[in-house]
């Protein structure tokens, strides 16, 4: 009997780590979110309030009225979307080649394209910055689009190649017999069938670019070129006496677009990772 109770208890034990998981994950975010609606004074109150005394959106208004705020938002969006489109197209092509063609040095080349995954982004800024200034690309969108695209391609190629491999070949053969050209096969057969994988890869790439900081910090100088994370960093840097509610409102604004995107495709992304495609 006692053993049975013990067993039952231990059956339920997994709930404890789950509670830890929830608290661990949400505390920093809830605390920041709630403070973003508080007044400057309320933040200092002890004991702290989780639900603000008065929902006040003035911090968000301050953020939206910042000089260049909309420009930063545009920069982040533009860079994330452009680099993702280029990276995904290049990775579809390369992934298809690795999945379907038996060519010389295939394995070596696939390994080579994976090596950059163990190259730390931040550590590359010194030589990259030197090269970018040498060719006169410092402080341009192009410098960021190119570098963001390059860092997104290895993982995207790897995931897509793995996905293309499991698509039955017979579909392509049938299309070929019907006289479809290679690019038509790719566009009308392969791409529609791999939309889930393409979506996962795109979200990974969007996330990388949207959150990127070291490249933006090193390669741009003028204020109009800053991205949201860059400006958030400057905000924290420049305010002597920290206006926490405004800084936190800015933080929430910078997180939210990606979070909403993630909420829409959450299942896809989680399955994409847990199905073992990402390594």
């Amino acid at each position: 009997m006692l053993a049975k109770i013990k067993w039952k208890l231990s059956e339920k034990m997994y709930i404890i780590p789950l509670i830890v998981l929830v608290i661990w994950t949400v505390t920093p975010m809830i605390w920041a979110f709630s403070a973003s609606f508080k007044t400057k004074v309320e933040v200092y109150e002890t004991p702290p309030t989780i639900i603000p005394n008065l929902m006040n959106f003035s911090n968000y208004m301050t953020v939206f009225n910042y000089d260049h705020f909309w420009r930063y938002l545009f920069n982040s969006t533009f860079l994330a979307i452009t680099s993702t489109i280029i990276a995904v197209v290049a990775s579809i092509l390369a992934g298809y080649a690795f999945a379907r063609y038996a060519f010389k040095c295939r394995h070596l080349l696939l390994m080579l394209i994976l090596i950059p995954r163990i190259l730390p982004r931040a550590s590359l800024i010194v030589p990259l910055f030197a090269g970018i200034s040498m060719v006169g690309l410092a402080d341009t969108y192009l410098s960021l689009v190119i570098t963001y695209t390059a860092t997104a391609i290895p993982m995207a190629t790897w995931i897509l190649a793995g996905f293309f491999k499991v698509i039955p070949k017979s579909l392509e053969e049938a299309a070929a017999i019907d006289g479809a050209k290679s690019w038509q096969i790719m566009w009308y057969v392969i791409v529609p069938m791999s939309l889930p994988a393409i979506l996962t890869v795109s979200i990974f790439s969007l996330r990388e670019a949207w959150n990127e900081f070291p490249f933006a910090l090193a390669f741009t100088q003028s204020q109009e070129m800053r991205t949201l994370p860059y400006q958030l960093f400057m905000l924290r840097d420049s305010m002597g006496m920290q206006d926490w509610p405004v800084v936190l409102a800015f933080t929430i604004v910078s997180i939210l677009p990606l979070l909403i995107l993630y909420l829409i495709f959450e299942k896809r992304v989680v399955n994409g990772i847990t199905s073992g495609a990402v390594k």
Partner: peptide, 8 residues
């Protein structure tokens, strides 16, 4: 983002 994490 890492920056947002750090600020929080």
């Amino acid at each position: 983002s890492g920056i947002a994490t750090a600020v929080m």
